[in-house]
Design a protein around this nucleic acid. Structure first.
Length: 470
DNA sequence: AGGTCAATTACGTAG
DNA sequence: CTACGTCCATTGACCT
């Protein structure tokens, strides 16, 4: 007998959960059976780091404290570097000493936070620097992108997970995964909850792991015109710029109020501005030329999870927020005293992502209300809602439906170690990518910006699966 | 309205 | 193979 007070939505939700549990149970039995029948043990590539004896009792959470708020002069020179690297390697780091961890608020040398086993990231840095010198023909790139977006005809059936393209790139839960935006190289950068950034050339067995941050990575941004420069944002409230030429993780932005940074983005046509979400519903614009924030708006009632620019009109952005809405904004009119969104897309729970399609004419949102919604039409007024179970729980990064290489399909992980493909035309999940080689749930995805059919999925155990189209 | 608390969940590693 | 520890998210229930 159902309690009388329960509303219809709740009832439906519980029903869904129960149904899902049943399904999961069934599938678990199935997967166990296949695991048993599969005698050959799958060995995948994995990162290796120097075995650092970690103190038995570790600080569960390192709260970021700016030097200023702790009454220490901001530039206490040199010591910071040592203090930070020591805090990572120290074997006698007693819990009471936690307060003594001083976050380095200046540039960090890449060498000092490199966590490779052989101590040599020389070749990697040289590759990065080499790429930065390559001349990019902007016209050519744009041309090919446009062509791809409209003419992409990817055969979903051809998507394949080569065991060679699986690797444990990082330890721990991956929060961000990005492809290097180059046609010639299939390089992945991934960030995890510890503040590590790992690099992997798909298919190879080498990894380059750095520890430039002290909390979950919330953004990784390759510079299109200079591939040796990569911005990183973090819950520790910092934005850094990895510069392979200078061999540092430079300090770019340091919020004064210890606010977490949850998202990082940049318009295609303006490399001087960084847009990031900060604290409870804030969106800020950092200007490289002045080294300061040029704007700061309170757009949402809760944290902003993603910031996405419309590919066609770079003054239009979409935000998704834990306040249960996604919004579109016109940056040209956002400055008024009362912020008003172009449109507000209401969900019943926290919204984890809102992304424009490659042509910019559709918007896809993913919410913890167990829907993926697609908005079409000139004003995005046509809503399509597709059921998708999005309760990842606390150990997994939340699901976010991403666009493939055209406007026709979305890719999103599911709780059964698969990748659901949602057709925006059929308004339904039309296919699920599965493989016995996927031993964990892929949560965060990225489609290669130039290589159609190359899709990276990252897990909460540090693995990355790269599907390709053969 | 806003703070606090408990429950939730999957994965790698140690045994 | 099993048991254990994880712990920066979200939500509802319950309290001021």
């Amino acid at each position: 007998m159902a309690p009388p007070k329960i509303n219809e939505y709740e009832r439906k939700r519980l029903e869904n959960i129960r149904r899902n549990n049943e399904m999961m149970a069934a599938l678990k039995v199935q997967s166990k059976a296949t695991a048993l029948s599969n005698h050959s043990k799958i060995v995948t590539k994995s990162y290796t780091v120097k075995l650092e004896k970690k103190p038995k009792i570790e600080t569960p959470i390192v709260i970021r404290r700016s030097l200023r708020t702790r009454g220490i002069p901001p530039d206490s020179k040199g010591l910071d570097l040592d203090a930070t690297s020591d805090s990572n390697t120290s074997t006698h780091n007693s819990p009471n000493k936690v307060e003594n961890i001083v976050q380095n608020l200046g540039p960090i040398s890449m060498k000092d936070v490199y966590k490779g086993v052989d101590g040599s990231d020389r070749s990697f840095i040289e590759t990065l620097v080499g790429m930065s010198n390559k001349e990019f023909s902007e016209e050519k790139l744009n041309g090919s992108v446009k062509k791809m977006k409209t003419e992409c005809s990817l055969d979903l059936e051809s998507l394949y997970l080569d065991p060679e393209n699986i690797a444990r790139v990082l330890p721990g839960r991956i929060t961000q995964v990005r492809f290097c935006p180059s046609k010639d190289v299939n390089r992945i950068a991934a960030g995890n909850k510890f503040g590590d950034i790992g690099f992997w050339n798909v298919g190879e067995s080498e990894f380059f792991l750095y520890h430039p941050h002290e909390a979950p990575i919330s953004g990784i941004l390759f510079q299109q015109h200079c591939l040796s420069k990569i911005y990183t944002s973090c819950y520790d409230g910092l934005i850094r710029l990895m510069d392979a030429e200078k061999e540092i993780f430079d300090m770019v932005y340091n919020g004064s109020d210890n606010a977490c940074i949850y998202a990082l983005s940049q318009p295609k046509n303006d490399a001087n501005c960084l847009y990031f979400s900060e604290g409870k519903g804030g969106l800020a614009v950092f200007d490289n030329r002045t080294g300061k924030c040029s704007s700061h708006w309170d757009l949402h009632e809760a944290r902003i999870n993603t910031i996405d620019f419309n590919p066609q009109s770079s003054h239009i952005v979409a935000t998704s927020s834990s306040d249960g809405t996604a919004c579109t904004w016109d940056l040209r009119c956002i400055g008024g005293p009362k912020q008003s969104a172009l449109r507000t897309f209401a969900h019943k729970r926290s919204v984890q992502s809102a992304y424009f399609s490659p042509t910019g004419c559709s918007l896809a949102t993913t919410s913890l209300d167990n829907t993926v919604r697609i908005y079409n039409g000139v004003n995005l007024e046509d809503e399509t809602s597709v059921y998708h179970f999005n309760q990842t729980g606390r150990w997994l990064s939340t699901f976010r439906a991403i666009w493939g290489w055209d406007n026709s399909h979305l890719f999103i992980g599911n709780m059964n170690r698969g990748v659901d493909i949602v057709s925006t035309v059929q308004k339904a999940t039309v296919k699920t990518l599965e493989s016995p080689h996927m031993s964990a749930i892929p949560c965060r995805f990225e489609a290669h910006p130039y290589n159609v059919g190359m899709l990276a999925g990252a897990t909460s155990g540090g693995q990355i699966y790269v599907w390709t189209s053969s």
